[in-house]
Design a protein around this nucleic acid. Sequence first.
DNA 1: CATGCCATCCGAAACGTTTCGGACAACCGG
DNA 2: CCGGTTGTCCGAAACGTTTCGGATGGCATG
Lengths: 343, 343
Amino acid sequence: MTTLKDLSRALNLSVTQVSRALNDHSDVSEATRERVKIAAKHLNYQPNISARRLVTGRSGLVGLVMSYMSESPQDRQFLDVVGGMSKHFARAGLQFVLHMADPDEDEVSVYRKLVSGGGIDGFVVLDPKINDKRLAYLKKAGVPFVLHGRDCVAPDYPFFDIDNFRVGYELTRHLLEQGHRRIAFLNGSPGRTYVAHRTDGYRAALAEFDVPFVPGLMRNDQMSEGFGIRDTIRLMDKVSQAPTAFIAGNTWIAKGIYEGLRALGLRVPQDVSVVAHDDLLPDVHAGAMLPPLTATESPLHLSWEPLARFLSASLAGTDVSELQSLDAARFVQRGSVAPPVPR
Amino acid sequence: MTTLKDLSRALNLSVTQVSRALNDHSDVSEATRERVKIAAKHLNYQPNISARRLVTGRSGLVGLVMSYMSESPQDRQFLDVVGGMSKHFARAGLQFVLHMADPDEDEVSVYRKLVSGGGIDGFVVLDPKINDKRLAYLKKAGVPFVLHGRDCVAPDYPFFDIDNFRVGYELTRHLLEQGHRRIAFLNGSPGRTYVAHRTDGYRAALAEFDVPFVPGLMRNDQMSEGFGIRDTIRLMDKVSQAPTAFIAGNTWIAKGIYEGLRALGLRVPQDVSVVAHDDLLPDVHAGAMLPPLTATESPLHLSWEPLARFLSASLAGTDVSELQSLDAARFVQRGSVAPPVPR
DNA sequence: CATGCCATCCGAAACGTTTCGGACAACCGG
DNA sequence: CCGGTTGTCCGAAACGTTTCGGATGGCATG
């Protein structure tokens, strides 16, 4: 293993200057900086993390904590999430530590342990809940993190999110404009912030059209095809109050809705309209469904790069204001919406 | 943060003795050991792992390098693999670093880079190829690793493998005993060691029954349903030389074979017999197929725990001989095999 | 020519731990 | 009483990095 001392010997420089050259400090001439960097590459020098961490507070390690819920539909996104993060952190020179927590272990204590004993510089936090305990801890402890999603409208930490209020609003409004008044929303798991944001958008659009909010039309469950099938049938069974249109939280749910409706002998969009939010997941394409599904779309796989970038920049001291991104989903009209049939 | 120095001051002892007391070394009296441990707990002492790692040369980090092949069917195992590893390493007090390599980057150089910083203590290596360059490098560099699979019959490194020779042998032999003589084998990707081992078992069984090996009946491709469908149809199309039985490398392939045969109007097992190796993957259950699939079974998800255990034990200095495990797959007879129909 | 400034460099300390080599006393057998 | 053993202890070095405080020489300014 090559150390700074080896380099300094080889270059006839002090250890100090070599270190400063490699870390792009100010008081080292351009010529020697070049010389040092070339030699470092040539001798295949890699800084010793432990030594660096001992003297600075930093380890060059970033973490992602997940809890293992076997067989949940999210699992299919897992490669995308973890692979994407890892790849981008590797490029930023950070090592990506994946910690799979025991499901019965307290979430916060996992973070605490990793911070105090494991020396992890910062975290990527996914899937925020309302009043998220992890966020509360990380904020209080002053540990850097980046969030996929948001806690509130204007947080003071780095985040990457899409405008889920608008997603809810636009999908609902589109249906309202076509004349629908009983609109069911098969949303995601309760307690998630993005689900709440979409609900807010939904209610805002209803309010604009003076349509009362009917709690029974808002369904919350883990996003899956099964949820779509089940709740479609349950909702359509209440004949007199059955919805004329459905909003699906993602394309898996939408696929379930399609199947549920087909099972009931109903056609999309002639009998019932359907719209969805489309994360552009690898396995279900809204445009390839029959009929093609009208949706707001926003590729989930584009999240990992900015998340990784934001966290490494945050560790490097970049101001929070530059590390916040709120994307708007794109509304794509296809063939799954028609005016409601009168009953 | 309390350090050893703080403790030594408070206890009126040397730093050395405090360290030795806490680490249960021999030459410290029982009395002071107690005294030290109580004080440590009282002052809430946490050893600084960076300092410890600096002096011991260990980082406490273990790595898994994967290359990102988007959309390959392996992706569905990814959560299982990575999640399982992470969980078990966390229990062993090791941090699990996942490195997603750029597909165009040289495999070996990735390892070299990770090793040379004193960064990573050891690796888990998956999916060994014949003449695997990663193994060659790790062996030469003296970096600890554990392999899922084997290089050769009796390697000198820790590994966890199942007896793939026997898998090939038993499945083939079972079909031979039922009278089959033209047996197709839809195996895995070429170049993998386990694929070669299964092929060897297949050939050994054929030889015992004096059945010549027909190269055209051995098909190698990435394990997927599509492979099963395609090659079943291609093989059955050569009417006069069509196989009377199929061996599938895993249950995805088997599912493809079932579908291919159904598409051709052929029944299992009346017209064609099928057997497979079953990794007990989460999404396709051999016993739940129609007809239930006769298979050798060996749960893949039981691999991760021993792999993690072997690697951490290897790092702790346990002898290699105790860190090698070769499991036999269990042969389960179900309803997918019948004697061949005479043509 | 004296002064100050700038660019470039270096020695040494520091981070907190483990461990090597030795010190000191007490005790034992001869 | 002596040599050796045993049970406790300690000082100091080492791990590889960053960084503080200064050192040196060249150059322009007055």
